[in-house]
């Protein structure tokens, strides 16, 4: 059965490559975005202090580049799920002998592989060859970063499914998705480092899952989080992943009961 999910993921990659124009324009737009980011922060530092909360220019550039790179992965298959629910396709999906949620995750992972080639690879080239971003401070940090990133990406994917499932109850979740995008952009630390938030907001954020998606892996990369403290944060990430995963399963089974008993 694992093979089936692998094939599903692969089909999504094929699907992504089917749209040539989209592939290239998406790649160009992510490069442009990086350039804007780079020159914006250069301008900020040129006319202001040489340090913001301990972030020098190269620290800030490093943070922003890595954060936007990871930030691109915080979405998931929720949009697809909501679309299926709206269009009634979910009924056909239920006639398939696979686990619908796992299938969505597989599709999403396939999509993310395409995204990696399309957006992350060019950003990496740009970042190291032209922006000269900092390397992780230690081998330990370099090893921990992919682990923490993977956890963060999976939390994002599950969270996105949770938003998607809401379509069973509200049918139209466009507003909810806009809200989700705004919340994620800000609270994950993708827009500005969480360290620049006011103190009270930072404390609030500590109890939310969002900083686990981007801020934690980036801070491990930059060395702002290290040693035992970093491991604690990774542990918290794992706990959030489990929590959101269980929440998704629970809301899904409730939604399924509603669908199969009340006919949607």
């Amino acid at each position: 059965m694992i093979r089936a999910y692998y094939e599903i993921a692969k089909s999504q990659v094929k699907l992504d490559f089917a749209y040539g124009a989209w592939f290239w324009s998406s790649m160009v737009s992510s490069i442009l975005q990086m350039l804007v980011l780079f020159y914006f922060w250069r301008a900020v530092y040129a006319n202001g202090p040489s340090e913001l909360h301990g972030y020098k220019l190269d620290d800030m550039i490093t943070y922003m580049v890595v954060a936007s790179m990871i930030g691109g992965y915080t979405n998931g298959a929720g949009g697809k799920l909501a679309e299926d629910i709206r269009g009634g396709l979910v009924a056909i999906e239920l006639m398939r002998p696979y686990d619908q949620l796992s299938k969505l995750v597989a599709l999403d992972l396939g999509g993310k592989f395409g995204y990696f080639l399309r957006n992350t690879v060019p950003i990496l080239v740009l970042a190291f060859l032209f922006f000269h971003i900092n390397l992780p401070p230690s081998w330990g940090a370099a090893a921990m970063f992919p682990l923490s990133t993977a956890l963060g990406v999976l939390i994002g994917a599950q969270f996105d499914l949770l938003v998607g499932i809401m379509a069973f109850y509200t049918v139209n979740i466009w507003g909810l998705r806009v809200l989700r995008d705004a919340v994620l952009l800000f609270f994950t630390g993708q827009l500005v480092p969480v360290m620049l938030f006011p103190e009270w907001l930072q404390s609030v954020n500590r109890f939310l899952p969002f900083q686990s998606m981007v801020y934690v892996p980036v801070s491990i990369y930059t060395g702002a989080l290290r040693g035992a403290e970093a491991w604690v944060q990774v542990g918290i990430q794992a706990a959030w992943l489990l929590g959101v995963f269980l929440l998704v399963r629970w809301t899904w089974s409730r939604a399924m009961r509603k669908v199969t008993i009340f006919g949607g």
């Binding site: 094939e7 599903i8 094929k14 009634g88």
Partner: peptide
């Protein structure tokens, strides 16, 4: 309603169904 992929050749859809239904 269609149950096949809209945008990739149907051969790919059949290939995927082969794995889904083992």
């Amino acid at each position: 309603r269609t149950q096949l992929f809209w945008d990739i050749p149907i051969r790919e859809s059949y290939h995927l169904l082969k794995h889904i239904y083992q």
